[in-house]
Amino acid sequence: MINDRTYQITLLNSIEFVLLIVPTIIVISILATISLHSIHSERLKNIISSIFYFPCITSPVVYTLFYKQLAYSDGLLSNTLVNLGIVDSGFNLLQDELLSKIYLSIICIWAWSGFYIIILYSAVEGIDHKIYLSAQLDGANTICIYRRIIIPLVRPVLLLIITLCTCSTFQLYVEIALITKGGPGESTYTLSLYLYRKVFTYLADYGYSSAIGISIMLLNALFSLLIIKIRKK
Rank of each mutant, 00 (worst) to 15 (best):
Ala111Trp: 03
Tyr132Met: 09
Ile149Leu: 15
Ile118Trp: 00
Ile150Tyr: 02
Ile102Leu: 15
His129Asp: 12
Gly85Val: 05
Gly213Ala: 14
Thr33Val: 09
Ile161Ala: 09
Leu158Cys: 10
Ile48Thr: 07
Phe17Leu: 12
Tyr67Val: 06
Leu203Glu: 08
Asp74Thr: 15
Tyr132Ser: 10
Thr58Arg: 01
Gln95Leu: 12
Tyr67Thr: 06
Ile86His: 05
Glu97Lys: 14
Ile145Gly: 01
Tyr173Ala: 06
Ser210Trp: 00
Lys130Asp: 14
Asn83Glu: 13
Pro184Met: 11
Gly114Phe: 03
Ser50Ile: 09
Ile151Asn: 07
Cys56Leu: 04
Asn13Trp: 08
Leu94Gln: 05
Ala135Ile: 03
Phe200Ser: 08
Val22Thr: 14
Ile179Trp: 03
Gly182Val: 04
Leu19Lys: 12
Gly126Asn: 11
Leu11Cys: 05
Lys198Met: 14
Trp110Cys: 10
Ser105Gly: 12
Glu97Phe: 04
Ser78Tyr: 04
His40Met: 11
Val174Arg: 03
Ala211Gly: 09
Thr80Leu: 13
Leu159Trp: 07
Leu70Glu: 12
Ser50Gly: 15
Leu94His: 05
Ile9Phe: 08
Arg5His: 08
Ile86Thr: 12
Leu160Tyr: 07
Ser29Asp: 05
Ala140Lys: 09
Phe66Pro: 00
Cys167Ile: 15
Asn83Trp: 10
Tyr116Gln: 11
Leu195Met: 14
Ala177Asp: 09
Ser168Met: 08
